[in-house]
Computed example of a mutant assay.
Amino acid sequence: MNGRTCTFVEGIAMSASQRLTLQQLRRFSPIDFLSSHYLQQLVDSLQYIEHKAGSLILRRGEHALALYFLLEGEVWLGAENRNRHLQAGSPEACRALNENQPQDQDIGARSDVRLFAVERSLLERLLNWSEAASYEVGSLQVDEVAEASDDWLSKLLRSPLFGRLPPAHLHLLLGRFEFIEVAAGASVVRYGEPGEHFYVLKQGRAQVSLPGSDAQEPRQELHSGDFFGEEALVSGAVRGASVTMLTDGVLARLSRELFVELVRPTLIPQISARQLQQLSGHGKKNCLLLDVRLPMEYRLGHPPGSLNLPIGQLRQQAAGLAQDSLYAVLAEGGVRSELAVHLLNQLGFEAYLLSEPSGQPPIAA
């Protein structure tokens, strides 16, 4: 190792028989956040490495393009002659040895060790897609208070998704829907496929299914006026669920291009740092900064006072959020931040994407 930026540390490659299974890989964080579909993509890309006792694995100050996880053996951290060691299989060893960038300490092999490496950019991309796809089902919401006599269009227009559309956009949108007849048993969207359309069920009934779900578990059923598919169009992720027709029916659909042009801007309303400070400074609103990245990312740097609530937990913990507060979601989460804004607004909160830096320097936790 010479201190330059590198892709993988030097070492001895492991044999194919020693490769990790999906179940073994789930012991490591944040890899355990990945759905099975994306976990399989990751396991095929891993690099396996061995180091002899006494060798240096990572040098302080380096910028590594990969994250390194300890599989077997023991390493020292900070200095070889100090009493800080890390044993494979321990709780701390479930995280990467080099989460911080640049590397904040030397790490060496105290015994013969085995590691696996995963490219940071690949893991971040798969985490984004996995979390985005997990919300595909969340968009399939049934308006329980709608009366049976309401038609599909009136139900759709009362939804949070279309309630934000300007009248001009709304009229244009309704004129661009394409209507298609579908037969019972037809597969409308399939798990794992790219999203090409936004759908509204005009007539008939459909069923949502998740991969790996128990056949005995109740399935979510869709009725006239329910919509689905917008999350994949917002995020660029693949479909997170399958939707199959239970009866003959009619679907109204909108292409990805039209959806992005006419609907997407209203899904992700933005607020500037100046607007946020004005609202907060005059006491007009209780404004909170929300960071929806993983705790590992949050610890590496975040604005003071921001609340960390990973998007994977957002739906479950939304009940604990104050309804009268304004939530400014930090843009550092990329697609996850946009999805969080959309989800919060769907759940009845007032949420915006912070379009500019908050004016406060990030801090390391």
Rank of each mutant, 00 (worst) to 15 (best):
S235V: 02
A241V: 14
G212S: 03
Y191W: 13
R219G: 12
A186F: 01
A183D: 09
F228K: 11
G225N: 09
D226K: 09
I180M: 10
E217F: 07
A206S: 10
E231V: 14
F179H: 14
Y199R: 09
E181T: 08
S187N: 10
S242E: 11
R190S: 12
A183E: 14
F177D: 05
E178M: 10
L222N: 02
L210N: 00
H223N: 00
P218R: 11
V189S: 13
A237N: 03
S187R: 14
K202T: 13
E231P: 01
G204V: 07
A186E: 13
S235Y: 02
D214H: 04
H197V: 04
A232V: 04
Q207P: 00
E193I: 01
L210C: 05
V243H: 07
Y191L: 11
E193V: 09
G192M: 04
G225K: 08
E193S: 03
P218I: 02
I180N: 05
I180F: 01
S187W: 01
E181F: 12
H197Q: 12
E231M: 15
R219K: 15
F177G: 03
A232I: 00
V189N: 15
G204I: 07
R219N: 14
L210M: 06
Y191H: 14
K202I: 12
P194W: 06
E230T: 10
F228C: 08
E221F: 05
P194C: 06
P194D: 01
T244D: 10
L233F: 07
F177L: 15
A183Y: 05
G195F: 09
D214Y: 02
V182P: 01
F198H: 13
A186Y: 09
Q216R: 11
V200F: 02
G212F: 04
E221S: 14
V200P: 05
V188M: 02
D226E: 09
A183L: 12
V188N: 03
E230D: 11
A241N: 05
E193Q: 15
L201F: 13
F198W: 15
G240S: 06
A206G: 02
P211M: 00
G185I: 02
G236S: 10
E181I: 00
G195M: 08
Q220N: 10
V182T: 07
L201D: 10
R205F: 05
P218W: 03
L210S: 11
S213H: 04
F227H: 06
V234S: 06
L210K: 15
S209N: 10
E181L: 14
A215P: 04
E178D: 03
P211S: 07
E231C: 08
R205Y: 12
V238Q: 03
G229P: 04
Q207C: 11
A215L: 04
E221M: 13
S213V: 10
E230I: 05
G225S: 13
V208M: 12
H223Y: 14
P218K: 06
A186W: 01
F198L: 10
S209P: 00
S187I: 14
Y191R: 07
L233Q: 08
L233C: 09
A215M: 05
E221V: 11
S209G: 07
L201H: 02
S209H: 06
G192V: 02
